[in-house]
Design a protein around this nucleic acid. Structure first.
Lengths: 358, 358
DNA sequence: GGGAAACTTGTTAACGTGCACATTCTAGCG
DNA sequence: CGCTAGAATGTGCACGTTAACAAGTTTCCC
């Protein structure tokens, strides 16, 4: 017997069960007849405990239904096991794929993801950020690239690795894993120009007030710049509705496309592009004969519709995985990594929604 | 000046800045010339602090870039501010909508969502559950209805409200907010029977090993039972692939449907149903003339395709909201609520994918 | 057989905050 | 002017765990 009651006054610190409360490590230790540190070692699988002792402890844990309290553990060890992830929205399967990829990479190392989403609102990002930091995550993953001054300051002051994903910012805060949305726009434009289209347009959301899709905006910038370079006016780039765009965005924008006699359009997202295809079907407008369409994101649905959607593909699950692996590199203390910028690249996937596709 | 160093030995407990560490509440209090409790009161907005003092504290907080440590706060107050949510997957927009609804309801009360997902794996559910409970959430939300014995035991022992969602289990663990998947299946079957179809089929995933879509299975049970009741053999209920099903499930299953000369089919999910529609388009099979289709979930894409998809609608965002509100009712201590079972209902949405629709 | 190394277990003191209670200050009143 | 109620602020400790170090035991080798 090792426990003693001499110093403690009258609380349950010596391992007596307390009604209405979850059992603690001390109660387990008492039941198993060991010190609480031995229990702690068994829990964390530190392999320093004799098999028989370990068995006794495991039995006590099972008998009491003991579940360790990670908040207490975090406080003592200064390691929370949290990785924070801030996304614009969860309702976008590509962002959800990022979350899946991240978890897949981090699961083995026993990290938990702490997910927040901003609904594309800048002020909400700041609020959520403070919230997340209060949970002391060991790394912060957020969608690049625009953050408020205050947000950037908080991130830097936090002292944890910061990884911007899904866009490669011109001035990364620290690390970044993503691709160039600007380049996405340029690629789409060049493709349509090379195919010989004349009236080339694009559709995106209009960014009003607090709700801004920075990455979509980057794609449009790249698209417009490439258009200008080929001597075409960028006046056929249409803004409509607000982020996040979905199928109905494409549906709503279709009459405008037709009215402006656009013959090839780049949509800020596959979802919008699919909406355009569907609305064209209903209006008897032939795709791609009368209207060619390029999307972005390579959403599953784009592969299934008729005609299948030409799009720009980014492997978001791999992006999440890569981010997770970067974090695992970064976290062991000591190794003061230089900022790492990983470009996961992008691929134009030619399918049938553009006239003259191979 | 209130601080004193008499009892403390040599650590930073009296509020001296410590290099490489985030500032603590005591450093703030020292800078502001107050006790740490006053700072704590200011942070938590308890309205017991004089305006000038409060201002001084706020300035100190800003100067130091102080962010409270919720892990420490959780330990002291025994309230973590976490609500745990366990889902099969995030890549399903309906489940994502539940998460959104939950956050919307809980945001104001300053709760954070702790999300885990199981990929439909039973063993993974148990693993994740233990993980989540170690974070001491104040309530646990999980998708009903099948849980392992061990899981159920852990949940009961946790002493927190448990809310099963998305299916109303026959034997709820405690509270439940959802709908009857069995009834979904029956409704679909009755609808197709009433429309006068003869060769009525259904498609779902086959549940092998550890990966099981219990809720989809319930829908199939209901469907089969209603079919039998009408004297039809349930042999046209096809199982194929594994959960989660998506568009390609429908694509893959279409040749089987045609081969079996099925003239009306209920798909376990809209995504599969959309896949069937698309594959029929490619094969020149007319929908609904040659094959009628009913889905489940009322996913956005189903409204956009041609023909638009008849489906069974459940308001998942509202489901999340309702769950959040239930939690807010449950959490104030004292009020020992009786188990609450909320049926959010379901609606059959008639669209053009079924022959003879209004 | 003696000593060091390796293994196993234990003791004590943080970790950063909130609760319960104590103390100080202020205003109001007879 | 002294007393009291209430507001404002402070003190001490507990929350449940892990780090750091200490101590006891066994093993191994010359």
């Amino acid at each position: 017997m090792t426990r003693s009651g001499k110093k403690r006054v009258d609380n349950g610190g010596d391992g007596r069960a307390r009604p209405g409360r979850r059992p603690t490590i001390r109660e387990v230790s008492r039941l198993a007849g060991v010190s609480h540190m031995t229990v702690s070692r068994v829990i964390r699988d530190l392999d320093l405990v004799q098999p028989e002792t370990r068995a006794r402890v495991h039995k006590a844990i099972a008998d009491l239904g003991y579940v360790p309290d990670r908040a207490a553990g975090s406080l003592a060890s200064r390691r929370t096991g949290f990785i924070a992830l801030m996304l614009p929205t969860l309702t976008n399967t590509n962002f959800a794929a990022v979350a899946h990829g991240l978890t897949d990479a981090l699961r083995l190392a026993d990290y938990d993801l702490l997910i927040a989403y901003t609904e594309y609102s800048v002020s909400e990002e700041e609020r959520q950020l403070k919230n997340l930091l209060a949970r002391r995550p060991e790394a912060m993953v957020l969608t690049g690239s625009m953050h408020s001054r205050a947000a950037a300051k908080m991130l830097l002051a936090s002292g944890i690795p910061v990884i911007e994903i899904a866009d490669l910012p011109r001035q990364p805060l620290e690390h970044a894993v993503g691709f160039s949305n600007y380049e996405v726009g340029r690629t789409a434009a060049r493709y349509l120009i090379d195919k010989g289209f004349e009236r080339i347009g694009a559709t995106a959301s209009s960014n009003e007030g607090d709700v801004i899709d920075h990455r979509g905006e980057e794609r449009m910038r790249g698209f417009e710049d490439e258009l200008k370079r080929s001597g075409r006016p960028p006046e056929l780039v249409l803004r409509h509705g607000h982020a996040p765009v979905s199928f109905d965005h494409g549906v709503a924008v279709t009459p405008l496309l037709l009215e402006k006699r656009i013959d090839a359009v780049f949509a800020v997202s596959d979802l919008s592009a699919v909406g355009i295809v569907m609305e064209c079907q209903r209006r008897g407008v032939a795709v791609p004969e009368q209207l060619s369409i390029v999307g972005f994101g390579d959403f599953e649905i784009g592969r299934e519709i008729n005609p299948a959607l030409t799009t720009i593909h980014v492997d978001f699950h791999a992006l999440g995985l890569r981010t997770g692996r970067l974090i695992l590199d970064l976290l062991p203390p000591g190794a003061a990594h230089a900022p790492e910028i990983v470009d996961v690249g992008l691929t134009l996937v030619e399918r049938a929604s553009v006239r003259g596709a191979k």
